[in-house]
Nucleic acid binder design. Structure first.
Lengths: 342, 342
DNA sequence: CTGAAAGCGCTTACAG
DNA sequence: CTGAAAGCGCTTACAG
């Protein structure tokens, strides 16, 4: 399918002007006579002319396009992040290109290469579950990318990465979750931490221990399980934990790393005949859209992903505000947590 | 942030060759002496050189990038479609740019403009809920886009649009749903059709009537309600329908236009104190990921969105296969439909 | 207010 | 096997 597109030369010729004048009209520059402008505009409309973003990208320094790299889109959380970023970018005249990290890997594509050849004006990179062994690789990749374009990080920030970022305070999420459950009378509170704490001690686990201490609750090793933040692994994590414990020692409440993990827990627990929230309270994190429709509706910590995406774009737009920002979280109570019967 | 990027000239200079030779090495062309190649590759690696996609886009006919336009990402269905398309494109060396239709509208962007300036090698456009009054506008837009690049349609195809497409057979979905519910003994089967049938008689409603007839079931006007395919509107549609009927005439089963609508129905029905599936059976469409976790787990018609996305890309890749394809659907039984008590 | 010309960073015949 | 040169479709000083 060979398609002949009109170029600026065609328009100039038909309008009887130079290409410089067409360019001026296209860009809405002042300093073109009304008559000339009208004539050019007429021809542009007639031929439905659209300038090539490639030619523009070549001549101009900027491309008016940002990129965003997400682990995957299957987690609605990331969809919210994307939409927040997309909307803020669009409102400022920027396009937003999406690169799903997982799919890129499957296709054998390298982030650095893909980003670099695209001449983006900036990129938002959402990190997830970076083990200590991967940290160095990541640091190198990010540093390479930063050579070419401004980078703003989000997601779960590993410690010691000196990049501008917008994240939610995961410590606060866990802390508030423990507090809430303790207030409901729970004494056996477990954490499905979402990453292997052996590899990289993030703040989630530390914050869990601290909150437990503050609530004068004992720390039981078997109540801490780690893994990936997916529904499937949530099921696996619950099964693993329960299999190491006699039923009388089973936790009465579970803090899941995110809502996906929590959905997995709900599903696995239901499969084991547990009633929720009577037998087991579950609290998620992120307050994804579907939390209202799970069985039971999931109590969760809202992490404002849309706002994070928006804020990340603002950081890209305004170079002066490049710090490490942290947004607060908020407890959304639904029906997956019960008061412990006294 | 001014960033100095290496160009092909820098590499050529450092390697002591011409830019043509660098270009040949970059593109893996044969006919470069091993020695020269090695030298050039060394310099490329040293400077981490990446050619500009913009310069390439200018010289070459193709850009190795497809686009996909979706109504919105909030429906996981569309996420699946995107991922299917993305993966197939990546596997063939193509990038995939996402344009969320709803967000574009909010930002006041025009599809035709956005697509046209990007010189994509093709675009997949996912249609949804096109009323008769909008059909002409759409036909014009699509025709304009087709001037510039190959187009493959998907989603809900309005009749009389002569474009290549891959869709699922919605008639079949509805037909199978009615059949299944009739087999369970339901006689009062309602349809939340997902679009306003007054505006544009799609095949969903027609197929519903036909299936009802085949099952020797009466057609009750109040059992047909139409609206948007969202959770919110699903709630509204159920409320609207029930408010027009005395409880003894309430339907015992509901066919929802998609899973989002079905989730809305489950939620609204639960709010009304109905037990599901005993008091009300609900069947969704698309078999979105979350169907397993709703309350109760949702029986749904699987529509293979991932496969559709993949197939759409294949159509773009292979120009010879540009028909109007229809993929079959499949009933996935969970726990939202009950046998009617005799 | 308008145009001629250089340049952005590549690819692609065309010579040699 | 390698290079000089034209060209892709724009923007941007620079003249006038």
């Amino acid at each position: 399918m060979e398609i002949e597109r009109k170029t600026i030369y065609d328009i100039a010729e038909h309008a009887g002007v130079s290409i410089a004048t067409v360019s001026r009209v296209m860009r809405g520059e002042t300093g073109v006579s009304a008559k000339t402008r009208r004539k050019v505009e007429e021809v542009i409309t007639r031929y439905n002319y659209q300038p090539s973003a490639y030619a523009r990208g070549l001549t101009q320094k900027h491309t008016k396009t940002y990129g965003i790299i997400l682990p995957k889109l299957a987690n609605p959380n990331y969809v919210m992040l994307f939409e927040g970023a997309y909307d803020e970018a669009a409102a400022n005249g920027y396009a937003m290109s999406l690169f799903p990290w997982e799919n890129m890997n499957d296709a054998g594509l390298d982030v650095v290469e893909v980003l670099s050849e695209r001449r983006l004006d900036g990129v938002i990179i959402c990190l997830e579950f970076i083990g200590a062994d991967e940290l160095e690789t990541w640091r190198n990749k990010l540093t390479a990318i930063r050579q070419y374009m401004p980078v703003v990080l989000t997601g779960t920030m590993p410690p010691g990465l000196d990049f501008p970022s917008v994240t939610v305070d995961l410590s606060e999420c866990v802390h508030k979750s423990v507090e809430y459950l303790a207030k409901l009378g729970h004494e056996r509170i477990a954490l499905l931490g979402g990453f292997d704490e052996q590899l990289m001690p993030y703040s989630r686990d530390a914050s869990y221990r601290k909150a437990l201490e503050e609530a004068h609750l004992p720390m039981v090793d078997q109540y801490r399980v780690f893994g990936r933040c997916t529904v499937e692994d949530g099921k696996r994590q619950l099964d693993e934990m329960l299999s190491h414990l006699v039923p009388s020692q089973w936790p009465t409440a579970i803090i899941a790393a995110n809502d996906m993990v929590a959905f997995g827990v709900l599903h696995a627990a239901e499969g084991r005949g547990l009633r929720m929230p009577e037998d087991l309270s579950v609290i998620g994190c992120d307050d994804v859209f579907y939390t209202e429709y799970s069985n039971p509706p999931l109590t969760s910590m809202r992490t404002r992903q849309t706002e994070i995406g928006c804020r990340a774009v603002q950081m890209l737009l305004d170079e002066s505000v490049r710090g490490q920002e942290t947004l607060p979280c908020e407890l959304i109570v639904r029906r997956s947590c019960a008061q412990v019967k006294g």
